[in-house]
Every structure is written in structure tokens, then in C-alpha cells.
């Protein structure tokens, strides 16, 4: 077989290669530089290898312009988990509601989706101003969660619409036929079938909440979230500890993704495993 690939193949393959280099090479730099020697700077060349900057990072607030990374990490995770759960609940409820047309459904849909395209900084600013106007204090638990939801929810909604759009309505009719009531239909049929979608929404919300700053920064009140802390560090200090933070957070994200994939494949496996029984 002498099937020659067309020239466009090589062009596109090169483009993809460049894109991958562009995407991952800078990250690789960050990982490498995080092992910079104690006297090294923020750029190449490396002056020896050490885990010095990790020691600084985990050693707490040791004088290098370091904020309280651990506390802001905890704040971010707590926020992200709550936002993920709320997003999933709202997205599933909305998805269920939208399977039927109701008056004003288009308006509600578009107004929810619009917040995807609104500039985040102004959404955040607007929320903060409104709180101020009403004499409320911005607080991570109120304005913070609210601001983040304006960002995570539209994505969650879209995912859910797609998942439920592909949901075969005869599953539900079959369940009704077999005597299931509305609650049983939901818990025993719909939720198990759309579960991968729900997990997807939670993951998407978790990660986008974790890295969001534009909407969050004016609305979390006292105490920084992780991205705010890092941004702060970028201006305040210029040591490779930043790279150590970058490496640790990347590891964290990958662990999260890995765990999700593991959980989903376990779910799939447990279902097929029963064949053997």
C-alpha cells in the first residue's frame, strides 16, 4: 500500500505539535525550575538542584514574602466543593425542568447563559457593589459562592441539557409502567443513568471555581483564595517558591482528574463485573 498522506496532513500535524509544545513546554519549565538550588533565581540557568523551595513552601510563612498558602488552599477547596455540589444540584433540577417547555423558558435559559460572556471582573464588581448598597458585608459564604456560581452554573446547565437531551424518554415511561412513582423514577432510573454527567458537572465546577479570580476577588471578604494568594505572591516576591506552588497545585489537579477517571471506570467496571457472578 502506498497511500501517501496529503500535504495538509503534515501541515496540520506540525500545527498540533507546535500547539502541544506551546501548551506543555512552559509548564515543564515551571516544574524544572521549582527544583532550583537555594541561591537560584526565577529563570534558567539552574544553579544546582534542591528541594529547598518546597521546604520553604511547606515550612509555613517563613519570611520570604510568603502568605499563608495552606489557609488559602483550604479556603479555595472548601469554596470549590460547595460550589460544585450546588452547581450539580441546580443543573440537574434545571435540566429536569427544561425537558418540558414552559412560559419564559427561553428567557431564563439565555439569561443564565449570558453570564458566560459577561466580563467576569464586572460581574464581580457588580455583586460587590450591590452588597455594599444593601449594606451587607461581602463574605465567602454568601457573595463568594454567588459570584462563583455565575461562572460555574452556565457550564453545568449546558452539560445537563446535553445529557438529558440524549436521555431516552421511554426509560421513564417504562419505569412508570412498572409502577415507579415520581421519586423512584428519579432516584432509581434517571439519576443512575445520568450519573456520569453529574460527576462531570461537579468536576468542571470544582476546577473552574478553584481557579476563578475575576469574580471571586471582590466577593470573598477577608482571606485570600488560592489564585489570589498566588497572584499576590507574584507581585510581592520573586523566588522559585512560586514554581513549587505551581508544581504542587498541578499535581493536585491531576490527582483530582485521575481520581475522577478512576471513580468513573470503577463505576463502569462494577456494572460489568456482575456478569462474572
Amino acid at each position: 500500500m502506498t497511500a501517501r498522506r496529503p500535504r495538509s496532513f503534515y501541515f496540520l500535524a506540525t500545527l498540533l505539535g507546535l500547539f502541544i509544545v506551546f501548551l506543555y513546554a512552559p509548564m515543564a519549565c515551571v516544574y524544572i525550575l521549582s527544583f532550583q538550588g537555594p541561591n537560584g533565581g526565577m529563570s534558567f540557568p539552574m544553579t544546582g538542584w534542591s528541594t529547598h523551595w518546597y521546604e520553604v513552601l511547606f515550612g509555613g510563612t517563613g519570611g520570604q514574602g510568603m502568605g499563608d498558602i495552606a489557609a488559602s488552599f483550604r479556603r479555595s477547596i472548601r469554596l470549590a466543593l460547595i460550589v460544585a455540589v450546588i452547581s450539580a444540584i441546580i443543573a440537574v433540577s434545571a435540566g429536569m425542568a427544561y425537558r418540558r417547555k414552559f412560559p419564559g423558558s427561553n428567557f431564563v435559559f439565555y439569561s443564565a447563559i449570558t453570564s458566560m460572556v459577561l466580563p467576569g471582573i464586572f460581574v464581580g464588581f457588580g455583586i460587590a457593589l450591590t452588597f455594599n448598597l444593601l449594606g451587607w458585608r461581602v463574605n465567602w459564604f454568601t457573595s463568594g459562592i454567588g459570584a462563583q456560581l455565575t461562572w460555574t452554573l452556565p457550564f453545568g446547565l449546558l452539560i445537563m441539557f446535553i445529557v438529558l437531551g440524549r436521555f431516552n424518554p421511554s426509560y421513564e415511561e417504562a419505569a412508570t409502567d412498572l409502577g415507579a412513582n415520581a421519586r423512584q423514577r428519579f432516584t432509581d432510573v434517571i439519576v443512575p443513568i445520568i450519573l456520569p454527567g453529574i460527576i462531570g458537572i461537579m468536576m468542571a465546577s470544582l476546577t473552574s471555581s478553584y481557579e476563578e479570580t475575576a469574580r471571586t476577588q471582590l466577593n470573598v471578604g477577608t482571606g485570600n483564595t488560592m489564585p489570589m494568594e498566588v497572584t499576590g505572591l507574584l507581585t510581592a516576591s520573586a523566588t522559585p517558591v512560586l514554581f513549587a506552588i505551581g508544581t504542587v497545585t498541578t499535581l493536585f489537579s491531576f490527582t483530582l482528574v485521575g481520581l475522577t477517571i478512576f471513580a468513573l471506570s470503577r463505576l463502569a467496571k462494577r456494572r460489568t463485573m456482575r456478569t462474572a457472578a
Partner: peptide, 9 residues
């Protein structure tokens, strides 16, 4: 049902 509608899970 025509497509049987067996619950996939």
C-alpha cells in the same frame, strides 16, 4: 417498548 427501554445500569 419498541427499543425495549431496558434500564442500562
Amino acid at each position: 417498548f419498541q427499543d425495549y427501554a431496558l434500564f442500562p445500569h
